[in-house]
Simulated scan of single mutants.
Amino acid sequence: MGRLMKLRNLIDLLKDKASLIKATLSIKSVAGSITVAILRATTHDSSGPPSEKHVAAVLALGNGSRLTASLCIEAIMDRLHDTQRASVAIKCLLTIHSIIASGSFILQDQLSFYPSSGGRNFLNLSTFRDDSGVDMWELSSWVRWYAGFLEQNLMVSKVLGHYWCSSPRVNNKKDKEDKVLAFSTSDLSRELDALVDIAEQIGEAPDSLHLQRNALVYEVVRMVGEDYRLVQSEILLRVSELGNRAENMSYDELTRVVNALKRFEDCKERLSLLFANRKRNEGLWELIGETKMKLLMMIGKMEEMRLVMVRMGRRDDRGSESTRFRNLFAQSGKLLGSDLVLVHGWA
């Protein structure tokens, strides 16, 4: 088994060399230089993630024309979908993640519209399997999860209207706070739902957490951990503002926010396990708990008022029926009295 694995690794290494030589021969063309950059960042070597130098070379392709950026994204996707090796797939996804986090706008823009038809599963890795060995089989589950996370990442960016996990220079905290204040309660609730969706996706990480000893998986968890920290920040802004608006929210709005907060709380244990060595944001969880209780109290008051109104309505209905009956009885008595007068000749 060990010899077979070594043979496969050798074959993969030769494939990388051959592909690089082929691309280098056409280095004068734009497509050739793009291919070289992608191949160097996504080799079959499973000992570690792409080097910063090679990732930077890919990101630099976004500083050119829109055509170059488009060809870059297309080349990454071709590499991702053509490979059967988990290590290559992970490196492609790490490169895509770097584009989302640090790439130029033009590169991010091309990524967000790939493919042109869109769709939830545009990375198309939900059935990815590398059966070359036990380790690669387990690593495949991380490929599927990571792809799902990146898909969710882009979907949330579309909901929020910006790349929420981009570098701080792109997304100023003060600007975010001002936007949150200007949003309607409905918009804030919708965005909170989307952010909780991605927290749930993060919490669905594979059970094989021991694979974090693998350098590739470690880098994946590190980058996702950075995004999770930003997710917490985005959730904090919205929960704080929604809590301030509690008294002016409708029953449906209150219920929607409470459900989102409950879903987020349900992720806490799993997220804490995944990011065990990272600082816990206890302040956020306290705010979540306090806000949820506040909203539940508002819901309780509304339900009590609704119950009182229903009871009053029934009482009014019974009162109206009694009044109508008494009036009818009185009218009947008058008519009956008139009839008696006529029968007995009384005037």
Rank of each mutant, 00 (worst) to 15 (best):
R8M: 13
R8N: 09
D12W: 06
S29T: 15
V36D: 03
S47K: 12
H54Q: 10
V58S: 02
L59D: 08
A60E: 14
L61Y: 04
N63G: 12
S65D: 08
S65M: 06
R66D: 14
L67G: 15
S70K: 10
I76L: 14
Q84I: 06
Q84E: 02
S87A: 08
S87Q: 07
G103D: 05
G118W: 10
G119Q: 11
G119A: 10
R120W: 08
N121P: 05
L123S: 06
N124F: 05
N124Y: 07
S140K: 00
S140I: 03
W145G: 13
Y146Q: 03
G148V: 03
S167L: 12
K174H: 08
K176P: 02
K176V: 13
V180C: 13
A182M: 08
S186G: 13
S189C: 15
V196E: 01
I202R: 01
G203M: 08
G203I: 11
A205H: 04
P206D: 09
P206H: 10
D207E: 13
D207N: 12
L216A: 01
Y218I: 06
V220Q: 01
V221D: 05
V224N: 05
V224A: 13
V224P: 12
G225E: 01
V231A: 12
Q232T: 10
I235M: 09
I235C: 09
V239H: 04
V239D: 06
E241L: 07
N244Q: 13
D252Q: 11
L254C: 02
T255M: 03
T255P: 07
R256W: 11
K262F: 00
C267R: 00
K268Y: 00
L271T: 03
L271H: 00
L274W: 07
R280D: 12
L284W: 01
E286Y: 14
L287K: 02
G289Y: 02
K294C: 11
I299Q: 11
L307Q: 15
R311G: 07
R314A: 03
R314W: 01
D316Q: 15
G319K: 11
S322M: 01
S322H: 01
Q331L: 04
S332C: 13
L335A: 04
L336V: 08
G345K: 00
W346D: 03
